[in-house]
Design a protein around this nucleic acid. Structure first.
Lengths: 213, 213
DNA sequence: CCCGTTTGTAGGAAATTCCTACACGATCAG
DNA sequence: CTGATCGTGTAGGAATTTCCTACAAACGGG
């Protein structure tokens, strides 16, 4: 796969600053993303397309001035190579999905999906492939079951980390070296697909693990 | 100030998963926040209040089932010590603000404000104080002017870091040691109030600095 | 001209990330 | 049955980052 090796040139069009900021903060943690521009409105987006030359456009469906789909279609006319990821306010039916794909949009995520889904989709799309998510069936397919995949020691560490026990203390409580604790941490993160501590914390808190004891 | 020294016990009520997740990811980066619960709806929030015992409730104004204000009022009846931070969809007029304060809400941020504003407010409120933000006048009062406060060297480093130049390379280009570059980074972060690289990147990108050259 | 602040420079300690290593028991295929 | 592979518990090293401290030269007032 040679497609999409360059840094992902991203343009983001989201009306509300709060969502735009917090999404961007997450996305920009990945060092192969380059933010080339952002807008609150559709027309502004179209105006700045040719100067910013994004490879991926992340755009809300409902904008103040226009329909995200309409804007996306215009954008695709200007640059057919653009990968568009649409953020919809509601879950998307397969029927609507078909319309979107027809229009040349590469993927759609809804605001009711977890953020990891959006990030994953973003990177998937970047090479130009279409991403038809699995979000219609079992919503937590991945993570929910993944906890079961952790080994005993890993679970202990995960719980302690989730409540922010310092690595040194964890090592002490388990009677192993700090290095070992780090190894567990690494494995947990790999297995669960986490990238930062908050993901672990949130996951544990959502599954009552870490609450009990 | 002895108030609010314990970890901030936070409850979050936000309907859309995407916003909830991304906000939580940011908030949980602060190690003195303990997430005690989250809900999508108002009634669920009220139900879980007495078992979770939050110190701060972060709640959306417009929930699927109820008005956030109404829920907040109920919550305050159950626990008058609770600090409520309301997230409104629209900018809030002083008139509405008065109503909120009357109801015992400690602060309001709108979805059109930057995320740092929300985080700041969250921590401000936690001791029980009321926070009447400065978001009505000059929106970017802090950060915008802050760049001017950076010294020459600091600006150079800020620009290079914003485009993700590795520290070693920056050191090379400027002809100083890595340690020095780190010092600049620290100072930049302190001066600007940043906590992570994405904040810097976003800030620079928003002010064309780093684009030019 | 003296003093406090800013700026350019850098070092140290501790923590974190990323990778590699390795022994042991279990599982699996031939 | 037996060697190959896998998952698990354990740990070390290198490079990087974070957090703090230091300090001299320059600057800006009073």
């Amino acid at each position: 796969m040679l497609a999409g090796q360059r840094r992902l040139r991203l343009y983001v069009t989201i009306g509300q600053r709060l969502l735009r900021d917090s999404l961007l903060f997450q996305i920009l943690l990945h060092d192969d993303v380059e933010l080339v521009g952002e807008s609150e409105t559709g027309v502004d987006t179209l105006n700045r397309l040719h100067t910013t030359r994004p490879g991926v456009l992340l755009i809300e469906e409902n904008l103040q001035d226009n329909d995200g789909l309409t804007i996306a279609e215009h954008a695709l006319t200007l640059n057919p190579a653009l990968s568009v990821l649409l953020i919809s306010d509601t879950p998307v039916s397969t029927g609507r999905m078909a319309i979107y794909l027809e229009a040349g949009i590469k993927a759609v995520v809804s605001k009711h999906q977890p953020i990891q889904e959006l990030i994953k989709t973003l990177f998937y799309i970047r090479g130009g492939q279409v991403y038809v998510g699995n979000w219609q069936h079992k919503p937590a397919a991945g993570a929910l079951g993944a906890f079961e995949a952790l080994s005993g020691r890993e679970r202990e560490v995960a719980q302690l980390m989730a409540r922010r026990t310092p690595v040194r203390d964890i090592a002490g409580q388990l009677g192993v070296s700090c290095k070992t604790v780090h190894s567990y941490k690494d494995r947990i993160f790999v297995k669960m697909g986490f990238e930062r501590l908050p993901e672990l914390i949130l996951f544990m808190q959502r599954h009552q693990h870490g609450a009990a004891e």
